[in-house]
């Protein structure tokens, strides 16, 4: 599988990366070589194999429904790039 510049632009858009036009070809080549490596997987037929997403095949433990966290807004917002009136600020969102 060889990725074309437009594929790279689409992926970068999905991943919200402002890819420089100057490096698109380089990324296309790098990503294509990785995909080539990955395609070795097709050697084995896995049609009857259940996917394994957690190595231990364990099940979820549940938490009791109780409030354990208190207000730490000041501490959390001290490391934020832009806050005012307790709100995180971003360029105007148009809906």
């Amino acid at each position: 599988m060889s990725l074309k510049p437009d594929d790279v632009r689409n992926i970068a858009q999905l991943a919200r990366l402002h890819i420089d036009e100057a490096v698109i070809d380089e990324y296309a080549a790098d990503l294509s070589s990785i995909l080539e490596l990955v395609e070795q997987m097709n050697r084995v037929d896995t049609s009857d194999v259940a996917p394994l997403s957690n190595p231990l095949d364990a099940t979820q433990r549940l938490r009791d429904d109780s409030v354990s966290e208190s207000d730490e807004r000041d501490k959390f917002q001290a490391i934020a790039p832009d806050v005012a009136d307790g709100l995180y600020r971003v360029p105007k969102v148009i809906e």
């Binding site: 992926i11 990503l31 995909l35 097709n42 084995v44 896995t46 259940a50 996917p51 394994l52």
Partner: peptide, 30 residues
């Protein structure tokens, strides 16, 4: 990091999920 984010994004995207991510999870079991 950007290379890996992009490959990962691609592997999960519509039309490629089964060929990449699901396939990898099946092989993982093997």
């Amino acid at each position: 990091v950007k290379r890996r984010i992009m490959i990962g994004t691609y592997a999960l995207s519509a039309g490629y999920y089964d060929a990449y991510y699901l396939k990898a999870q099946q092989l993982r079991r093997l």
